[in-house]
Design a protein around this nucleic acid. Structure first.
Lengths: 110, 110
DNA sequence: ATATAAAGTTTAGAAAATAAACATTACCTT
DNA sequence: AAGGTAATGTTTATTTTCTAAACTTTATAT
């Protein structure tokens, strides 16, 4: 039978990372503090997760200034947009595709 | 401004648990070994996760037999179906709703 | 009897997520 | 000018969560 569920990208299947990507997909770019506000996350968590997304090539960061005047802008990449589409598609399929009914077990009386 | 992202149910936002629930939503009930097959999970992981879902009231288990003849059937509950719908709706909103553009920063020159 | 297999469960180790503490620089007060 | 507080991130330590390996129990085959 070999039924297979749609593949779920684990990098995007995380609440904060997903919100970051959805925000950037809609805005194209946003700065660190704004992402922090709208995702309702702590700065520490946000810092870790945008680095993860950057390392995956899903976003790029532009950092200017240091100390108190530092300013970090994130911009979604083409690859990031594609990954997000694919993830969304996969989920949609998961919800709509259904699962095959279990095959009958062979029994002595069969 | 107080924008808020849709709420994501963390219990359902896990690949294996989600697959279990999607399968049960489609089949209404399925036995342990069948879930194991179609979710492509190990028995250990499956055991843990269905217990988690049961404790959340999202599914019920009927266990018969012991040892080699044991047989566990899982059935989705009304609450489970509702939670799945809500989760799906939330995700859908997340993808479609968009994010407000950042407000201008007040500047001395403004 | 002994070995092997089947169906689950427990639990120990790995991985991931989160927030608390830290670093750096600017601005404000006296 | 010196000291305190605030702003913007980053590091790192803790907690939580996942995952699979090891175990339990009973049945079936040799």
């Amino acid at each position: 039978m070999t039924f297979k569920f749609a593949v779920i990208n684990p990098l995007l299947h995380n609440e904060l990372r997903l919100k970051i990507m959805v925000a950037l997909d809609s805005l194209d770019s946003a700065d660190f503090m704004y992402l922090c506000q709208i995702t309702d996350s702590t700065r520490g968590n946000l810092s870790v997760q945008i680095k993860t997304l950057q390392e995956a090539g899903y976003l790029e960061m532009t950092k200017t200034g240091i100390g108190r005047l530092s300013h970090t802008v994130c911009r979604i990449t083409k690859g990031g947009k594609e990954a997000l589409r694919t993830y969304e598609e996969g989920l949609r399929r998961l919800f709509t595709q259904g699962v095959p009914v279990q095959e009958e077990k062979k029994s002595a009386s069969g």
